[in-house]
Nucleic acid binder design. Structure first.
Lengths: 251, 251
DNA sequence: CTTGACATTGACGCAACGTCAACCTGTAAC
DNA sequence: GTTACAGGTTGACGTTGCGTCAATGTCAAG
């Protein structure tokens, strides 16, 4: 009556592979009932039943350690599955945001406003904005800004832009993940952003540094050329609000 | 003017880690511009620019090999992103189906109709159905069936059920993945199902084996106790239809 | 006795680094 | 001069669940 099966027989009956069974043995999830003199693994009815349950849980996506806990440590399958479902839900929202991000980038690429190919060495699209800057802040402001920029070495320019680029990346990421503007992460980003702005020469930073930053924030939102740096107006709004909170609590 | 940076400086400026940069060097994705006498990696402006593009693409979820192809082999970023988006879309639908599957199982667990705990050794809920079988097919039919089942060794019973269990699993899987009833996979499953039925003794199988299978299929759909084996009526319908197609083309 | 099917135990591979470990270097401080 | 200490280097393991060789022993059949 006491029937034993070889590893292949078990694998075929259960619709899996012998490699998998040896793996389950190796990690202690499903040891065979006994070993023959020849060293062959031999499985009994209890092992087959256990295997069936293992495969059923695996089918649902549970990890092998979790399956072991359910089968051996009396962990409730219901709890394990509920936890897994939560994980998967998080995964789907993450994926959806990633897809949205890709779509935005693809659209930008098609429009030729590729963040991959442009503005690497143009310093904030510097000269491009000459007229506008002169109009809004006066010829003097542009001259100071221009002088400052040209005084930097290539290395400094590059480092400055590198930081800007990293910053933009991280802002977009934070926006996509929907973090809280007042939260730790967003505020850390705001701090980095402010630090980056401190690199500007004294002459360009007005006395009211806080007010200056708030003004910049507004500009990010209102000017689509800046807004694209932060995934559009939504992102720019996020950046502005995070900066605002930061300024109010730290400056 | 030719400025070089150490690995830490680059890492900080770009918002990544030195470990990552050494990894990118190791796989040939971003070799440093030069090596100092001390063996230190030294990066130049071109490397920083390349790094920026790498990080931007990575941010979107592209794999490092794909990034390398985009940067070096002139593969279009647009194409790479389109392909990635497709992958991710598939992923989300997969995840959604998995979540649905988990929900079904959890509901079943809560109702106490746990596939984990029941009917391992009861042989098709055999005796439980005695009256019903006698009523529908006659006392004779039940007696034959009962004799057949009792004549099997434990090993045979177990193997038979094991196959049934694996079959059910795979059916549910196919249903959840939305495969085509006439497709290769569903037909292979139907073939396995029919093979499994062939284990029944001759006495139980009528002359019209094809018709017998079609009748079974209908029963799977109409009787909720069978339907639960295949994820409810929808699944059972799928099984019935797949069997029907199989019978019509192979029997 | 040979052949083939099936068994065994390693060990690598996959994705993208994080995280030690063990050991130099460069620079500032005592 | 030496002592720290920060920062550089090259390995190598760990992560998830097996697939896939590789090298070799065992068993039933011809």
């Amino acid at each position: 009556m006491k029937q034993l099966w070889t590893i292949q027989e078990v694998a075929k009956a259960a619709g899996t592979t012998s490699r998998t069974l040896r793996h389950y043995d190796a990690i202690g999830l499903l040891p065979p009932a006994s070993l023959g003199e020849n060293g062959y693994r031999l499985y009994d009815a209890a092992a087959l039943i256990r295997l069936q349950r293992i495969l059923a849980l695996r089918n649902l996506g549970l990890g092998l350690p979790d399956i072991a806990r359910v089968l051996d440590d009396g962990l409730s399958a219901e709890d394990a599955l509920a936890a897994l479902e939560q994980q998967l839900l998080l995964e789907t929202t993450r994926l959806e945001r990633q897809i949205a991000s890709i779509r935005r980038t693809r659209i930008a690429l098609q429009k030729g406003r590729s963040p991959m190919t442009e503005n690497m060495f143009d310093g904030f699209q510097h000269e491009q904005y000459k007229e506008e800057v002169e109009e809004r802040w006066g010829a003097d402001a542009y001259a100071r800004s221009d002088a400052w920029w040209k005084s930097k070495s290539d290395a400094e320019k590059l480092a400055w832009q590198q930081k800007l680029s990293a910053l933009n990346n991280d802002w977009q990421d934070a926006v996509a993940r929907g973090v809280d503007v007042t939260g730790e992460e967003a505020q850390a980003l705001a701090a980095r952003h402010v630090d980056w702005l401190r690199d500007l020469p004294q002459a360009m930073v007005p006395d009211d540094f806080g007010g200056y930053i708030l003004g910049l924030g507004e500009m990010y939102v209102n000017d689509p050329r800046f807004a694209t740096n932060y995934s559009g107006e939504v992102g720019a709004t996020f950046v502005r609000d995070a900066l605002k909170v930061y300024v109010e609590t730290n400056l």
